[in-house]
C-alpha cells in the first residue's frame, strides 16, 4: 500500500527538518509543500529526505494541501495523510489514522483531540470555546457531527482524493474539507490524536479574532463557488 504524508509548510525552517525526519523514521514517504517560504524551509525539508513541491507565491494552507493531494492522486497513492509542519502532532498517530482506510472501513479519517478523556491534554480556555463554536458551525452548515474542528491530522483514501474538490486557499480549507465529505457522502470516522501546544505552535497560529472571521470567509466562499 502506497502511503504519503503531506506536510504544508510556510516559513517553518526551524522545525521542518525534525518533523520530516521523525515521520520518515516511521517508514512513510513525505511530500512537503513549501508554500512560498522566504526562509530555508524547502532546503531543510529536502535535507531531511522529503519530496519538496514549491509554491513560488504564498497561496495559503488550503492551497498547499490541495497541491499535495493532487500530487498524491497523480502518483496513485492509496492513502494521503495531512500532517502539520510545526511539530504539534505525534508521529505515532499516523498509523492509527491509516488503519480504518487500510481496513476499508472509511474513506476519510479525521484526528480529534477531544475523543478520549485524556486528562493530560491541555487546551487553552479561549481556544476550547472557539473549537466548540467551530464544531457547532460545522454541524449547522455541513450537517456533520464531529468532536473536534480544524484538526490538522486527516487521512484520505484514493477514492476520497479523487472526489474531493476544494477551492478555498486559506485556513477555511479545514471547514471546506468537512463540507466536501458531506457533499460526496464519504465514509468518515474520528480517531483520538494528541496535540502538543508548544510556545512555538501558539506563536505561529492565527489570532483568535482571525479564527472567528474564518467562519464568514468560509460561507462567502461557499456562496460564490
Amino acid at each position: 500500500m502506497k502511503i504519503i504524508i503531506i506536510i504544508p509548510a510556510y516559513n517553518e525552517a526551524a522545525k521542518i527538518f525534525n518533523v520530516v525526519q521523525q515521520v520518515k523514521s516511521t517508514g512513510y514517504d513525505v511530500v512537503v509543500i513549501d508554500d512560498g517560504s522566504i526562509d530555508a524551509t524547502a532546503e531543510e525539508a529536502s535535507r531531511a529526505g522529503a519530496k519538496v513541491l514549491r509554491h513560488f507565491v504564498n497561496r495559503g494552507y488550503g492551497a498547499a494541501l490541495t497541491t499535495g493531494m493532487d500530487w498524491a492522486l497523480r502518483h496513485n497513492c492509496d492513502v494521503a495523510v495531512h500532517f502539520d509542519a510545526d511539530g504539534q502532532h505525534e508521529v505515532g498517530d499516523i498509523e492509527k489514522l491509516i488503519k480504518p482506510i487500510a481496513d476499508n472501513q472509511s474513506d476519510v479519517v479525521l484526528g480529534s483531540r477531544f475523543i478520549s478523556r485524556d486528562v493530560s491534554l491541555y487546551v487553552p480556555a479561549i481556544r476550547r470555546i472557539l473549537i466548540k463554536l467551530a464544531i457547532l458551525f460545522t454541524r449547522v452548515f455541513s450537517g456533520i457531527k464531529l468532536t473536534d474542528a480544524h484538526n490538522g491530522l486527516r487521512a484520505f483514501s484514493n477514492s476520497a482524493l479523487a472526489k474531493i474538490d476544494c477551492r478555498q486557499d486559506g485556513m477555511t480549507f479545514a471547514s471546506e474539507i468537512i463540507d466536501q465529505i458531506a457533499e460526496h457522502k464519504l465514509r468518515f470516522c474520528e480517531i483520538p490524536v494528541t496535540i502538543r501546544y508548544t510556545e512555538y505552535s501558539k506563536a505561529k497560529g492565527e489570532s483568535n479574532i482571525k479564527k472567528v472571521l474564518l467562519g464568514a470567509r468560509f460561507l462567502w466562499g461557499k456562496i460564490i463557488k
Binding site: L53, F56, D169
Partner: peptide, 20 residues
C-alpha cells in the same frame, strides 16, 4: 477577485507539480 485568486492558485499549483 475571488476568481482571480483561484486562478493564481491554479497557476502556482501547476508550476509546483510541473517542476517536480
Amino acid at each position: 477577485l475571488e476568481k482571480m485568486e483561484h486562478d493564481i492558485t491554479k497557476i502556482v499549483r501547476h508550476v509546483a507539480l510541473k517542476n517536480e
